[in-house]
């Protein structure tokens, strides 16, 4: 019987998810023995035209990481969707928008202006901006166009599974590979992680959630054994799906939500905001104002990895051109 065909691709990504797959160490040899990897830009030399030549649904499993923010990324997402039996949104960017999703606080125009004209380290005296079509003496060059907004993979094509995390922990990847190889994948549409929150698997000492004030990291030295939230450090554990092994907490850093919202939550940021306001101690208008001063960047902090996946999806702009 022919070996299953596997593909991995990155859209608006950083390479971390691909490195996480490589970090499965010996498991990668098992994966290579189990299946034929037919497309994986970071590791193998297959080109887009190889993928276009494949028959529909000939790729058994495609792990797609990275968010969608350009015409090329959307095109390849649709291409891989057509060629794949099972398409997995791999990593926080594909699942929720990820860090590139923070671009939904700004606009395409502002990004282009900053990157190509305003940035202090630029040397671009003619103010050249990238163009979709550029004429050169020898012919024409083309580039993809940027969309106004960042989208998750599921907002562009149907997806069978979601593996969250920035990046997904290597042991979770190993677990998923084992499930796939033994035919024991959970129901289609599942987010392959814990059904509970990060708080649930956190082994720090939790007493009562009553916060007198929120601190920024330079304002306090935290006790590594106690709950960070109870000490006044904003930790997104209560509104984040578990399954990551609390790796950030173990490094004494608060959770920032890269596993996305837990089961039953539509908007991670709204839920986290609700939790923060609930546990704050203070019933007077002065206390409320104090809290507002202490939570410096609510939208950025609560939607760190999930802005495109949120209910509002992006900051409202006067005129949205295209997507």
């Amino acid at each position: 019987m022919a070996k299953p065909k596997l593909a991995l691709y990155w859209a608006a990504a950083c390479g971390g998810c691909d490195v996480a797959v490589l970090d499965t160490n010996e498991k990668i040899l098992e994966i290579a023995a189990f299946g034929d990897i037919v497309f994986w830009p970071i590791a193998l030399d297959f080109k887009y035209h190889h993928v276009r030549a494949m028959e529909d649904k000939s790729i058994d499993l495609c792990l797609f990481n990275g968010a969608i923010r350009s015409t090329e990324q959307e095109e390849i997402a649709k291409l891989l969707r057509a060629k794949s039996k099972v398409l997995v949104a791999f990593g926080a960017c594909a699942c929720f928008g990820g860090i590139p999703g923070l671009a939904n606080f700004t606009t395409r125009e502002e990004i282009l202006q900053r990157v190509y004209k305003e940035a202090p380290s630029n040397s671009n005296p003619e103010g050249t901006l990238p163009q979709v079509k550029t004429k050169v003496p020898e012919g024409e060059l083309d580039l993809p166009d940027l969309f106004e907004s960042v989208q998750t993979l599921e907002q562009v094509v149907p997806v069978e599974y979601f593996i969250p995390g920035c990046p997904p922990p290597s042991d979770l990847i190993v677990k998923v590979v084992d499930l796939y190889v033994t035919g024991k994948m959970p129901p289609v549409g599942s987010i392959v992680a814990s059904d509970k929150t990060c708080c649930d698997e956190c082994d720090r000492v939790k007493e009562e959630k009553k916060v007198a004030r929120f601190y920024r990291p330079h304002e306090i030295t935290t006790d590594p054994k106690k709950c960070l939230l109870e000490q006044g450090i904003i930790c997104c554990g209560p509104a984040t799906r578990g399954g990551c092994g609390m790796r950030c907490i173990k490094a004494n850093m608060p959770c920032r939500g890269c596993f996305g919202p837990p089961a039953g939550v539509a908007d991670q940021g709204a839920k986290m905001l609700s939790a923060i306001a609930s546990i704050y101690q203070g019933d007077t208008p002065e206390a409320v104002n104090k809290m507002l001063d202490e939570v410096v960047d609510p939208a950025g902090t609560f939607y760190r990895f999930g802005l495109p996946d949120s209910m509002l999806k992006r900051k409202k702009v006067a005129k949205v051109q295209g997507k």
Partner: peptide, 23 residues
């Protein structure tokens, strides 16, 4: 490709940058 880190990092608290820019 272009993601725009140069722009969307603006307005984020400074302590968040070491968590954003490794991406």
């Amino acid at each position: 490709e272009l993601r725009g880190f140069e722009k969307f990092c603006e307005g984020r608290p400074v302590e968040e940058l070491p968590r954003i820019v490794p991406r």
